[in-house]
Deep mutational scan, measured.
Amino acid sequence: QIFVKTLTGKTITLEVEPSDTIENVKAKIQDKEGIPPDQQRLIFAGKQLEDGRTLSDYNIQKESTLHLVL
């Protein structure tokens, strides 16, 4: 699982696999929060994550925290 922290300070927990794409993660966030993926920007280690890449591409491991910017 990974954590996604929103600007409001809320933390969302997501069940993911390293092979999941960023697009996939955004879809999971939409399921939980109702935020359309095209409004979501995910930041990890100061980098904006691209939809077509996977979590493992960015070396995002379990218990990692991503930041969600709208």
Rank of each mutant, 00 (worst) to 15 (best):
Q1N: 09
Q1I: 15
Q1K: 12
Q1L: 14
I2K: 01
I2S: 01
I2W: 02
I2A: 02
I2F: 04
I2C: 03
F3L: 06
F3Y: 15
F3V: 05
F3G: 02
F3T: 06
F3H: 09
F3E: 03
V4P: 01
V4D: 01
V4H: 01
V4M: 02
V4L: 05
V4I: 13
K5R: 13
K5T: 12
K5D: 04
K5M: 15
K5Y: 09
K5F: 08
K5L: 12
K5Q: 11
T6L: 15
T6G: 06
T6S: 07
T6H: 06
T6R: 06
T6M: 15
T6I: 13
T6F: 15
T6N: 06
T6D: 07
T6Q: 07
L7E: 15
L7P: 15
L7Y: 13
L7R: 09
L7T: 15
T8E: 14
T8Q: 14
T8D: 12
G9E: 04
G9H: 05
G9Y: 04
G9F: 05
G9L: 04
G9P: 02
G9M: 04
G9K: 03
G9N: 06
K10G: 08
K10V: 07
K10L: 13
K10F: 09
K10W: 09
K10S: 07
K10N: 08
T11G: 03
T11R: 08
T11P: 04
T11C: 13
I12P: 00
I12T: 03
I12M: 06
I12L: 08
I12A: 02
I12N: 01
I12H: 03
I12G: 00
I12R: 01
T13I: 13
T13V: 13
T13Y: 07
T13N: 06
T13D: 05
T13R: 09
T13F: 07
T13S: 10
L14I: 15
L14T: 02
L14D: 01
L14K: 00
L14P: 00
L14H: 00
L14C: 04
L14G: 00
E15M: 15
E15D: 14
E15Q: 12
E15Y: 13
E15K: 11
E15R: 12
E15H: 14
V16N: 02
V16G: 03
V16M: 08
V16E: 00
V16F: 15
V16Y: 15
V16C: 12
V16S: 04
V16L: 06
E17R: 10
E17D: 13
E17I: 14
E17G: 08
P18A: 11
P18Y: 11
P18K: 07
P18E: 10
S19I: 06
S19L: 08
S19W: 13
S19F: 10
S19N: 14
D20Y: 06
D20H: 05
D20E: 09
D20L: 05
T21R: 07
T21E: 03
T21F: 09
T21I: 04
T21H: 04
I22E: 00
I22H: 01
I22F: 03
E23A: 14
E23Q: 10
E23W: 14
E23V: 07
E23G: 14
E23T: 08
N24M: 14
N24E: 14
N24W: 10
N24K: 13
N24G: 09
N24R: 15
N24Q: 15
N24H: 12
N24P: 00
N24F: 11
V25N: 00
V25C: 05
V25P: 00
V25L: 11
K26V: 02
K26A: 02
K26W: 03
K26S: 01
K26R: 05
A27F: 14
A27P: 00
A27V: 13
A27Y: 12
A27G: 09
A27L: 11
K28I: 06
K28P: 00
K28R: 07
K28D: 02
K28N: 03
K28F: 06
K28V: 04
I29Q: 00
I29N: 00
I29P: 00
I29K: 00
I29W: 00
I29D: 00
I29V: 05
I29T: 01
I29G: 00
Q30I: 03
Q30V: 04
Q30H: 12
Q30L: 09
Q30M: 12
D31R: 11
D31C: 13
D31W: 10
D31T: 11
D31I: 12
D31Y: 10
D31H: 10
D31P: 02
K32F: 07
K32A: 10
K32P: 02
K32G: 04
K32T: 08
K32Q: 11
E33D: 05
E33S: 12
E33T: 13
E33P: 01
E33H: 07
E33Y: 07
G34N: 08
G34C: 07
G34Y: 04
G34I: 02
G34R: 06
I35H: 08
I35Y: 13
I35A: 04
I35D: 03
I35N: 03
I35V: 08
I35S: 04
I35W: 13
I35F: 13
I35P: 04
P36Q: 07
P36C: 08
P36H: 12
P36G: 05
P36Y: 06
P36S: 08
P37F: 14
P37N: 07
P37T: 15
P37S: 14
P37E: 07
P37G: 08
D38T: 12
D38M: 08
D38V: 08
D38Q: 11
D38P: 06
D38G: 10
D38E: 13
D38W: 11
D38K: 09
Q39I: 12
Q39C: 13
Q39T: 09
Q39A: 08
Q39K: 09
Q39H: 09
Q39G: 06
Q39V: 10
Q39S: 08
Q39Y: 09
Q39D: 08
Q40I: 11
Q40W: 06
Q40R: 02
R41E: 12
R41V: 15
R41G: 07
R41W: 10
R41N: 13
R41I: 15
R41M: 15
L42I: 07
L42V: 04
L42A: 01
L42Y: 03
L42F: 03
L42P: 00
L42W: 01
I43S: 09
I43K: 05
F44M: 04
F44Y: 15
F44N: 02
F44C: 04
F44V: 03
F44H: 06
F44D: 02
F44K: 03
A45Q: 15
A45L: 12
A45K: 11
G46V: 02
G46Y: 05
G46I: 02
G46F: 05
G46L: 04
G46P: 01
G46C: 10
G46T: 04
K47M: 14
K47F: 12
K47N: 10
K47E: 13
Q48E: 15
Q48L: 11
Q48D: 13
Q48G: 07
Q48M: 12
Q48C: 15
Q48N: 10
Q48V: 13
Q48T: 13
L49V: 04
L49F: 02
L49T: 03
L49D: 00
L49C: 05
L49G: 01
E50S: 07
E50F: 07
E50L: 09
E50M: 08
E50K: 07
D51C: 06
D51M: 05
D51T: 06
D51K: 04
D51R: 04
D51A: 06
D51S: 07
D51G: 06
G52S: 12
G52Q: 10
G52C: 11
G52F: 12
R53D: 05
R53W: 10
R53T: 06
R53I: 06
R53N: 10
R53Q: 08
R53H: 12
R53K: 15
R53C: 15
R53E: 05
T54F: 06
T54A: 06
T54P: 06
T54W: 04
T54G: 03
T54H: 06
L55F: 03
L55I: 09
L55V: 08
L55P: 01
L55E: 00
L55A: 02
S56L: 13
S56N: 10
S56V: 08
S56A: 10
S56F: 10
S56D: 12
D57K: 03
D57F: 15
D57P: 00
D57S: 13
D57Q: 07
Y58R: 01
Y58T: 02
Y58I: 03
Y58A: 03
Y58M: 04
Y58L: 05
Y58D: 02
Y58N: 02
N59F: 07
N59S: 09
N59Y: 07
N59R: 07
N59L: 07
N59G: 14
N59T: 04
I60L: 04
I60K: 01
I60F: 03
I60Y: 02
I60H: 01
I60C: 04
I60M: 03
I60W: 02
I60R: 00
Q61T: 14
K62Q: 13
K62V: 09
K62E: 10
K62P: 12
K62N: 12
K62F: 11
K62A: 14
K62T: 11
K62G: 11
E63A: 12
E63V: 04
E63D: 15
E63Y: 15
S64P: 03
S64M: 12
S64R: 03
S64V: 08
T65V: 15
T65G: 03
T65N: 04
T65Q: 06
T65E: 08
L66T: 02
L66M: 05
L66S: 01
L66C: 01
L66G: 02
L66K: 01
L66Q: 01
L66E: 01
H67D: 12
H67A: 07
H67F: 12
H67E: 14
H67I: 14
H67P: 01
H67L: 12
L68N: 01
L68P: 00
L68F: 03
L68V: 05
L68M: 09
L68S: 01
V69N: 06
V69R: 08
V69E: 14
V69Y: 14
V69P: 01
V69M: 11
V69C: 12
V69G: 06
L70G: 09
L70S: 12
L70C: 13
L70F: 10
L70Q: 11
